[in-house]
Amino acid sequence: MKLKLSTFIAALCVAFALLLQYEWYFRNVERWPPGYDNNADLWAYWRGKVEKLDEKDVVIVGSSRGQFDLNIHLWDSITGRRPVMLAIPGGSPYHTVEDIVVNTDFKGLLLVSTAPGLFYSLGSGGGAAWVKAEMVDYYQKQTYAQKFSQWCYEFIDPHFAYTDPDISLKHLTERLPFPNRDSIEGGTVWPPMVRMDRYRNVRMIPEMENDTSFQNQQTRIWHHPEWKNRYKDSADVIIGHYADLARKFQERGGRVAFIRPPVTGEYLEFEPQMFPRDQYWDRLLRESGSKGYHFQDNPVSREMIPPEWSHLNRRDADIYTRLIIELLRNDQLL
């Protein structure tokens, strides 16, 4: 048979008909929001901006709590400067801090968010090694072709829900119902939780804030031992690493502050047991010579209840952002 333009258009119609239903299903049934992918290319784009910042600017590093719990647009409206958001869900800031201190001349405020189960991972450990390979090194080696592709992809990505990597075809195959052998755990099926914009500012979606079925699905994941407190490596090495970098950064005029965002549920129960405050948090601040803001030290943040134990809803994220700005200003770090 002959292939013609009409054949291709008919095939495109089939593809778009399927895509429309697919998008409709994920957007309206599973409630995935459209938004930007939290991917290495966008991270690399903002990492590139650090090179041009001055001493009044702020860079936020850390894991998902740092990214989800601070509203950088609100920060901008209060301070006149929008922080560069480089926190990475599921990752430790071990290599990001090193990259900024060693490879840039940035002299502003470096705000390091700590989630103990990820933060106390060695550079070669599970919480940090992938950040180096997939983010920090990726930025250093990113090609023009990759930058160009990301630029093109941004015309599509923010308008669709189905482009979320958590519902990629690979992740969907993990939902197949075949029972596993006794020693095998299936893949993690994530519920939708947040929506991210081009500035990597993340806001929790209303479904996760209000719907207990979403919250329960997420807390069941956090309850799993693999996710509860993922990594616990040598405190000596890790704190030493941050302390060395903080000193170096401070010597060139930069400021460093650590934050420990609010948690509840099993995180509130187990994190203090696994990472006793005096041996970890207090020691980190002492040895790095830096200021730190632990959520339990403030009556406002102490009372915050993250809907799924680990991340704040939009209202609390805004309150927490204002609080951190106020604390930083009180200490003349901002």
Partner: peptide
């Protein structure tokens, strides 16, 4: 069959979401 197969493959390419 060709149109359906081609359409399904284009759909597959759109939803696969691998990172290049």
């Amino acid at each position: 069959l060709l149109v359906a197969g081609w359409g399904i493959m284009i759909f597959g390419l759109m939803i696969v979401q691998t990172s290049g």
